[in-house]
Amino acid sequence: MNTITPLLLHYNYFITIFLMVSGLYIVIARGNMIKKLVGLSLFQSSVYLLYVSPGKILEGTAPIIDDAYSIYSNPLPHVLILTAIVVGVATLALGLALVVRIHEAYGTIEEDEIFDREKGL
């Protein structure tokens, strides 16, 4: 039990890093542009966890002030991440618009085929 507990209390960091690294892997290894954008948003959502999970206090509650509670989790990471999510979808839309234009110009969204076509020109 004594060796398990520290690992369990760092489990959120492990998963955060796993999500981050898999997003990175998708962005580097996959040539399909939509898959790359999905990988980018995986990476982004790992940052949500990275910010929000240290703000949690075990006995705490959501940061909405009420007389019945006295311990609240940290509201500051919530504010930062809330805006980051909406900005994230706006930039995702920008990336998808670029993908649509690339598909119209080259007829494909696979990176390798686009490179081949560029060489052929």
């Binding site: 999970s53 703000g55 949690k56």
Partner: peptide, 10 residues
Amino acid sequence: LDAVDVAMTE
């Protein structure tokens, strides 16, 4: 994680 506003946004 008590981030109710963020959860709603997500």
